[in-house]
Design a protein around this nucleic acid. Sequence first.
DNA 1: TATAACAGTATAAAAAAGGATACTACATTA
DNA 2: TAATGTAGTATCCTTTTTTATACTGTTATA
Lengths: 127, 127
Amino acid sequence: MIQYKNIQYQCSMELTLDLIGGKWKSLILWHLGENTLRFSELKRTLPQITQKMLTQQLRDLETDGLVHRYIYTQIPPKVEYSLTDAGKSLLPILATLCQWGLNYANEVEVDGKDLTCEPSAPSSLSQ
Amino acid sequence: MIQYKNIQYQCSMELTLDLIGGKWKSLILWHLGENTLRFSELKRTLPQITQKMLTQQLRDLETDGLVHRYIYTQIPPKVEYSLTDAGKSLLPILATLCQWGLNYANEVEVDGKDLTCEPSAPSSLSQ
DNA sequence: TATAACAGTATAAAAAAGGATACTACATTA
DNA sequence: TAATGTAGTATCCTTTTTTATACTGTTATA
């Protein structure tokens, strides 16, 4: 039994899935990878996410100590996001999840060759 | 890009998390482990789950080819659940997720020593 | 002067996930 | 005869998650 944020988990796996589950978190972590990305760069990397969701998920990840947020006191604003050490320690696991899904897709389904486990466009055009 | 059940995934990791995400699926898979369990045994192993959710999640897992369902034509009914090969191939990944959560909990938080990555009570009293 | 870029916030709504309760049929047990 | 165990369904309801849309203030650019 484990407790985090007033939630009781029977198993630490549940905690892990709370931290990286949902529609966006793992994708954000994955795309951050080893890079530092600005808010707008992340937004462009995940075109389907709304601004609100991106903000919300980044706040959660920051609160959970997986993502670091650095605010440049500039105008117009500049905010950079990067993985903390805890966040980076998730990368191999995310890679495993990705690889398993790939195998699953290739064995069970066939819609979609050319799958990749790399973040699609590691655009590192920081300003 | 990959498609499964009319859902488009940008990355196969999203697919994986759809298959094992949610409140119960990973826990069910984990508790099945190498055992075969009857519906009521699973229910007792996860006391908090409702009958509806257990049925629903097991159906999903079956549809996705992760769990096998064997019906004995008896009265009262007897139905046994076990992992398929695809399901078993997830076990190492679940163990990794569990272990990561354990480390995270020990480093970030402290509420809850004696965490375990073993299914709490591997009760294998099949009738 | 109007527009775009930046990093958001606010509000409402829709969709998905999860939960509570009652019910089924049949056989065995008390 | 009534209660219990089996593996569920059916219905309704609540909570959580996700989406859509409009809006903020400042600066640089066209």
